[in-house]
Amino acid sequence: MADALIAITVLWGFVFIYAVMATMDFGAGFWSMVYINREKTKATNIANRYLSPTWEVTNTFIVALVVAVYSLFPSAANILGTILLIPGSLILLLLALRSAFLVFSNIATEYKKPLTYISGIAGIIIPGLLISVLPITHGHYVDFADGTVNLNLNKLFSSPNEYAFIGFAITSTLFLSSLLLADYSKASNEMEAYRVYLRDGKILGPISLIMALLIMITLKNEVGWLYTKMMEDLPLLLISVGFFLIIGFGLYAPNPFQKGERGMPRLAVIAVTIQYLIASYVYGKAHLPYIIYPNVTIESAFTDPNSFRAVFITYIVGFAILFPGFIYFWSLFMNDKRYLRQKGNQ
């Protein structure tokens, strides 16, 4: 039991890291499209400056996530693979177009606009599809019948809960990325871009909060077991909502360190990350012990103990080796004034 719990925690960790990085990534791609015609504000440049070096690293996390599922919970991977064939393939097709055209748009500069439009639009649909994996694991759209499993797409796409999840994924992608880009443009001294992203954040914050509430309301009607269990952690949920106030403060309050400027984007970015961390902890805890309700639990799907031990050791060794690399990467692209404040068209 303890091992299975460790394994699901690792998996949850990957999901969380990927969720945060992917929202930044897909969101930045979308903003770079939206502001492509407003050259003066540099908002597109800022988005690209963040995106160019990071998209590959973000993409690797999605692969890490898939690998983690089948090496930690092989039989769950079997069922997930079967039911996710259609949504999974859609994600892959969009992801391929998105990544390729993102790279091409930075190389074929004369065709930048059409290429950016394709990658921006493909990119903003992906989070909506990715998050659909969650409602699918709630089990209500999966038909288990004599040895085979099937995803009931009609049932899935006629459920308000599914749409609440999709709406939440898209709005929070835009919300988180606008906060991050606000912070990034402030660090880059691009104050016009900063104001643009700060404004977007102010608009999108309340919308994504409403979407989160819609998820809870529809959950109550459709997935009672999960709702009840989430409500057991009501205090944590309330703290999570409380972080919204800190985010609001970070967006609206005058900056005590900088006269005449409003907003402390770094505070907002940190607060929003903590908020999502708490909320996804509550969700993940309530989801246990099921991976796919009600047939697949973390224990029934758990891998061989020998394999688990070997995999776990590679996690530790791998991250020990990679950690300095990540720090170096961060210092070069997130924290180096020469990169952030460069002139020119990058």
């Binding site: 690998v67 092989p74 991977a77 693979g81 999974g88 061989d304 394999s307 995999v311 590679t314």
Partner: peptide, 22 residues
């Protein structure tokens, strides 16, 4: 995983290391 779920179940159980290290 999408096309050969039976294969990947076996790989996940017996041969997870190469993918993991990869």
């Amino acid at each position: 995983s999408l096309l050969w779920p039976g294969f990947m179940e076996v790989i996940g159980r017996v041969m997870p290391l190469p993918f993991q290290i990869e």
